[in-house]
């Protein structure tokens, strides 16, 4: 049996998402795929499993090798969506409890995410210029302006949240 769940986790909430996916597994639902806020689960015997989300910034030419390294280390690649990769490991697996074993590489994951966020924010700002320069007061333009304001605000929050995450990791380094 399958079930689909729609749920929003923002880009900075990867740790919360991992916890939720673990809870789902304990309730007998294993993640099968993820696409645009839609999670597809398949029913399994309840099992404690750890999930880890990685953000991959390099080109996908080496995707096979990337997945092979994780699989060899005991992680199952269960889903992927725009740079995010979902890995699952049974709790009793002797594999390392985390996919990152040092702060430097963990920081690199969030730096990669930050670069994507900066580019998206820049693209959004450029796109919004023409809308904001248009002084039409029609309902359509007003709605469009508000939509841009909201999306840009969310992007700015995401950038700040990820910057804070990176700062915290750097503080732990010394």
């Amino acid at each position: 049996m399958e079930k689909k769940v729609t749920r929003i986790f923002w880009a900075w909430q990867d740790a919360e998402e991992e916890i939720w996916l673990r809870k789902m597994s304990n309730e007998g639902w294993k993640l099968k795929s993820y696409k645009s806020l839609r999670y597809t689960f398949e029913q399994i015997t309840p099992e404690d499993a750890i999930y880890r989300l990685d953000y991959k910034t390099t080109t996908n030419e080496d995707l096979d090798e990337y997945i092979a390294i994780y699989e060899d280390a005991g992680w199952e690649h269960v889903a992927q969506f725009s740079g995010w990769h979902y890995f699952r490991s049974a709790e009793n697996n002797s594999a390392a409890p985390d996919i990152y074993s040092d702060q430097a590489s963990k920081i690199q994951k969030y730096s990669g995410l930050l670069t994507t966020l900066y580019i998206s924010l820049l693209a959004l700002l450029l796109l919004s210029i023409s809308v904001f320069l248009n002084d039409s007061e029609s309902v359509f333009f007003t709605a469009l302006k508000w939509m841009y304001v909201i999306v840009i605000a969310i992007m700015v929050i995401a950038v700040v949240k990820v910057l804070i995450k990176i700062r915290r990791l750097k503080d732990q380094t010394l």
């Binding site: 880890r52 990685d54 990337y66 390294i69 994780y70 060899d72 280390a73 992680w75 390392a96 985390d98 996919i99 990152y100 074993s101 040092d102 590489s105 963990k106 690199q108 994951k109």
Partner: peptide, 9 residues
């Protein structure tokens, strides 16, 4: 123990 994410990067 090097984690796979750390090793890949």
């Amino acid at each position: 123990k090097i984690g796979p994410g750390t090793l890949y990067s």
